[in-house]
C-alpha cells in the first residue's frame, strides 16, 4: 500500500547482487523505521508491470538508485486493488 504522501519508495536493483540488495534494504529502509525490524526478503517487480496498472516510476536517485512509484489514485479501494495487482505481479525473493 502507498504511504500517506502517495509516493511509494522503491530501489532499482538491476545488475545488483542479492548481497548488495540486502545492504541497501538495511541501510536505507530498516534503519529509518521507528522500531527497526529484521529484513526477510524483497518484492521484485518490473517497471512494465507498474505501468500496466497506470502508475509511473519517478527515479530521483536520492539516495542512489532510489525511485518513487507515483500516480496512485486518492480513493482507498482503488489503491488496494492496484496494490493487490502489483503484489500478484511481483516475485518474492526471500533472504537465504
Amino acid at each position: 500500500m502507498p504511504p500517506p504522501d502517495l509516493r511509494l519508495s522503491v530501489f532499482r536493483t538491476d545488475g545488483l547482487t542479492l548481497e548488495k540488495v540486502w545492504e541497501i534494504g538495511n541501510r536505507e529502509v530498516i534503519n529509518f523505521m521507528a522500531q527497526p525490524k529484521e529484513l526477510y526478503g524483497v518484492a521484485d517487480i518490473k517497471v512494465s508491470q507498474v505501468k500496466k496498472v497506470n502508475l509511473e516510476v519517478d527515479p530521483n536517485d536520492n539516495p542512489p538508485r532510489h525511485a518513487n512509484i507515483i500516480g496512485w489514485p486518492p480513493e482507498k479501494p482503488r489503491q488496494m486493488l492496484i496494490a493487490t495487482e502489483l503484489a500478484a505481479a511481483a516475485k518474492l525473493v526471500l533472504r537465504a
Binding site: P3, D5, V29, I30, N31, F32, M33, A34, Q35
Partner: peptide, 11 residues
C-alpha cells in the same frame, strides 16, 4: 503502535 513503523511516515 508508533508512527513511522515503516520508515516512510506510516501512521
Amino acid at each position: 503502535s508508533v508512527d513511522n513503523w515503516d520508515g516512510y511516515g506510516a501512521k
